[in-house]
């Protein structure tokens, strides 16, 4: 019970960027709105998860639905940072939805803790983050550590890198005991907390208006 309470407190670190996003919302440039909505959705999902755990004993249904919404919002975020072809985003979204249906409706049920889609979308987010970082390096003429997009993409690299790694372990059904699985999730909670602090930093760095930059 004690570690469960600790996990709740750690997971509520999402409240920090969520609160900062509320305070700064009027000054946040609109191309960052998908991430802001994702953070608010994450906070709502945390609250719903606690309610579900206490009422039904499991939060898997809302978590499985949340990861799909998270994936689509992240794709929208990458799209709104880049102008150009929509094809790759539509392709990734279509493929992602197909994997989600396969994982959550065909191979398993919504009430199970399914890892295939989580591992898949983490990998897709990693690919888009790497592409975005290379674009930033080609265009940015300011301090990278104050660039909100750079901080967010680095956070994605760390968070979704760890997530894809741990979800892949889970996807193979290694027959680990509940205690080991719980400890693995505790690692993920700490990764989540570090990421939330980085998101808060990124929210503070989001510009009010979009600077005009030509590539080198």
């Amino acid at each position: 019970m004690h570690s469960f309470l600790v996990s709740i407190v750690i997971n509520y670190s999402i409240a920090i960027p969520a609160l900062l996003a509320i305070i700064r919302f009027k000054h946040i440039y609109r191309s960052f709105y998908p991430l802001v909505f994702l953070i608010w959705l994450g906070l709502a999902n945390e609250s719903l998860s606690i309610a579900m755990v206490f009422s039904t004993g499991s939060n898997t249904v809302n978590s499985n639905l949340f990861v799909l919404a998270e994936f689509l919002l992240l794709l929208l975020q990458f799209f709104s940072w880049n102008t150009g072809s929509r094809r790759s985003y539509f392709l990734a979204a279509g493929f992602g939805i197909a994997v989600w249906i396969t994982d959550n409706l065909l191979l398993n049920t919504l009430s199970q803790n399914n890892s295939l889609f989580r591992a898949f979308y983490s990998f897709v987010v990693l690919l888009f983050s790497i592409k975005q970082i290379s674009k930033i390096l080609n265009r940015n003429r300011r301090n990278l550590l104050k660039d909100a997009v750079f901080i967010i993409c680095i956070t994605f690299l760390f968070y979704y890198g760890c997530k894809s790694y741990i979800e892949m372990m889970n996807a193979f059904h290694l027959g680990l005991s509940r205690l080991v699985l719980w400890n693995l999730w505790i690692i993920m909670y700490f990764v989540n907390a570090i990421s939330n602090i980085l998101y808060a930093l990124a929210i503070l760095c989001i510009p009010t208006k979009q600077e005009f930059i030509l590539p080198y």
């Binding site: 680990l176 005991s177 205690l179």
Partner: peptide, 24 residues
Amino acid sequence: MHPNETRIYIAVLGGVLVLLVLVV
């Protein structure tokens, strides 16, 4: 935890730490 499980757990934890160091 079973000794094998402990080893798996340490391996995963090590992997996460390596990833963190790599990102930094």
